[in-house]
Design a protein around this nucleic acid. Structure first.
Lengths: 224, 224
DNA sequence: CGTCCAATTGAACGTGTTCAACCAGGGTGG
DNA sequence: CCACCCTGGTTGAACACGTTCAATTGGACG
């Protein structure tokens, strides 16, 4: 259903590109622009004017906030199909950053969405669906970080990743580092590591590699 | 801007009512229905079919989830002007409950919004705005619960309440109990109480009553 | 081969939870 | 009227958990 929205708006011809440049010279009447980013590159920055909405086509991105004390707090993980960049005010309240080298982002001019696109009801409903999806995503995350123990949080995180990233089930690949997971769950890196060791010791998961997790017992994973 | 949406949809004649009954027999062509709730009454229940979207006209409501271990987790505080009830699937993933006796809720049939209302572009954009507002609300809360110490969380919560509830500034009235705050911030009741004592001791706030907080020093409140 | 970074583990410390007691206010019923 | 209970709020003490600082390992890369 989200893909429906995507194909409506993001079906521009050229998609292959390199290093943070627009894929191809776009005609001015074309709404969506596709850009490829490398790991660590910023898609839109906290405090800047929010001229676009975005969606992830390929790769991985995050949206985060840097607090006054320097701490980074990941608000959400953005996977292919996810939309983001909606802001209450005119400014972005968070920074979006690519997390893998092959990240492809489509951007939609906000004023066009607000003014012109709305004339087409079918597309508008797709926008609503994307917004509701973003809402649910954030809500899921709120429930994950709201768990009591660190093992519960990490366990729920693993289940969330398993659900959101398609692949052989029970055999998941972590898309981000321990440090990112820590900032995502609001706990320290060491605690993330300890929680993974704890889950392994208790037979909930198997760590075949630092980034490779095999879910052994799904029921005991989220319970804590 | 949100009020715009509200007046578009919620301008039905009768508003006065009592105790969880529809305000008046509504003609079938009218989309929005207004209901009054008392404290503790459920507006929509987790797991039930999501036939409506809702908005708060008056009073106070919360949206929460009951976990498998019996813990209650408040997802958000719903104040007049707030919309809620958006669900990814066909079922509500949370329970909404009135928190004060004079809570008035407007409900919008979902299928009508999806099918009929969308023909009017101006109204549709209002729906998008309501969704973005809900999204930002949840994001704000995510940042509050993501804070490190309990005093920071409670301090941020107070600032949030001050911002969202109109009234004489620096002199705020807590709309919910310590227990609710605890479930909202994901900490225990005792910790909430201790945090308030701590903030008082440090001269950030003054507790003129259990529910009456006076903000003395706004800068040191959120810092922790 | 050395450097750098990610990840892990240990130990001490700080903070929040838990269990418990206590207090204040508002009902209710004898 | 007072005793009683119940709810909401506060405070104390012991404990569990997560943080912090520190050290170590392992792999990737020049």
């Amino acid at each position: 259903m989200i893909n429906h929205f995507q194909t409506d708006f993001a079906n521009n011809p050229a998609t292959a590109s390199v290093h943070s440049k627009l894929v191809a010279p776009e005609p001015s009447w074309l709404v969506a622009k596709t850009t490829q980013y490398r790991r660590g590159e910023v898609i839109c920055r906290q405090g800047y004017v929010a001229n676009y909405w975005y969606s992830v086509t390929r790769g991985l991105a995050t949206r985060y906030v840097i607090r006054a004390d320097g701490r980074r707090h990941l608000l959400e993980l953005l996977l292919p199909g996810d939309f983001f960049g909606f802001s209450r005010q005119g400014d972005h309240e968070s920074t979006s950053e690519a997390m893998s080298d092959d990240t492809v982002i489509v951007q939609y001019p906000r004023h066009r969405i607000e003014k012109r696109i709305l004339s087409e009801a079918s597309q508008t409903w797709s926008i609503c669906e994307a917004l509701i999806e973003a809402l649910s995503r954030l809500e899921d995350h709120l429930l994950v970080v709201g768990r009591v123990t660190a093992s519960e949080k990490v366990g729920s995180f693993l289940l969330d990743i398993e659900r959101r990233i398609p692949g052989r089930t029970t055999d998941i690949q972590l898309p981000i580092s321990r440090y990112d997971i820590a900032d995502y769950l609001g706990i320290s890196v060491e605690t993330v590591s300890r929680a993974l060791s704890d889950l392994t010791r208790r037979g909930c998961i198997q760590l075949t590699g630092p980034r490779d997790v095999k879910i052994v017992n799904r029921d005991t994973l989220a319970v804590g």
